[in-house]
Amino acid sequence: MRAKDAVGRYGEEVAAAHLVRAGWEVVDRNWRGASGEIDIVALHGEELVVVEVKTRTGTGYGHPAEAVTPAKLARLRRLAGQWLAAHELRPRGVRIDVLAVLVRRGGTPSVEHLVGVV
């Protein structure tokens, strides 16, 4: 596994644990649809949340959340529809959140949760 892939996978583990500690229910991970992949699908109360996780080891290339472009958000909206079509779950609402994970060498990862990114 490439180092970049390992960092990304670690960030997804950190993000999922963060959501579970906050009382969320993680219902799917790394779900693949025709338009790409959803990192995490979770329930926050009665709302379905498609979670994009971006992980970096530093900010030399910007904050992790800066990697979520308008094109990526459009793809996540399509994927949310595909996920709902493939599952029987009918939530009250659907939104897209971004979890930005910053992993510093030898330190505890920090998680910034951006809610309802449009």
Rank of each mutant, 00 (worst) to 15 (best):
M1P: 04
M1W: 06
M1L: 06
R2A: 13
R2E: 12
R2F: 10
R2I: 03
A3S: 07
A3C: 07
A3T: 08
A3L: 12
A3Q: 09
K4Q: 13
A6L: 12
G8W: 04
G8F: 05
R9L: 15
R9K: 15
Y10G: 08
E12S: 03
V14A: 07
A15H: 01
A17Q: 00
H18Y: 15
H18I: 03
L19W: 02
R21S: 10
A22S: 09
A22I: 00
A22R: 13
A22H: 00
G23Q: 08
G23S: 04
G23F: 00
W24S: 03
V27P: 02
D28I: 01
D28W: 01
D28Q: 07
R29K: 10
R29C: 00
W31I: 02
R32Y: 07
G33K: 09
G33Q: 01
A34Q: 06
A34R: 12
A34I: 06
A34V: 11
S35L: 07
G36C: 05
G36P: 01
I38A: 01
I38Q: 07
D39Y: 07
V41G: 03
G45N: 04
E46H: 05
E46V: 05
V49F: 04
V49N: 03
V49M: 00
V49L: 04
V50F: 14
V51I: 05
E52I: 06
V53I: 02
K54P: 06
T57Q: 13
G58S: 15
T59M: 10
Y61T: 14
G62M: 09
G62N: 01
H63I: 02
E66N: 11
V68K: 08
T69C: 12
P70H: 09
P70L: 07
A71T: 10
A71I: 01
A74Y: 09
A74P: 08
A74L: 13
R75L: 11
R78Q: 15
R78H: 13
L79P: 12
A80T: 11
Q82R: 08
L84R: 11
L84C: 09
A85T: 11
A86L: 01
A86N: 08
H87Q: 07
E88V: 13
E88K: 14
E88N: 14
L89E: 11
P91N: 04
P91Q: 03
R92D: 14
R92P: 00
R92G: 12
G93W: 04
R95A: 08
I96V: 13
D97S: 05
D97V: 03
L99N: 12
A100T: 04
A100N: 01
V101F: 07
V101N: 03
L102M: 09
L102H: 10
R104P: 10
R104E: 15
R105D: 13
G106T: 10
G107C: 15
G107Y: 15
H113L: 14
L114K: 13
G116T: 11
G116M: 09
V117Q: 05
V117W: 06
V118H: 14
V118E: 14
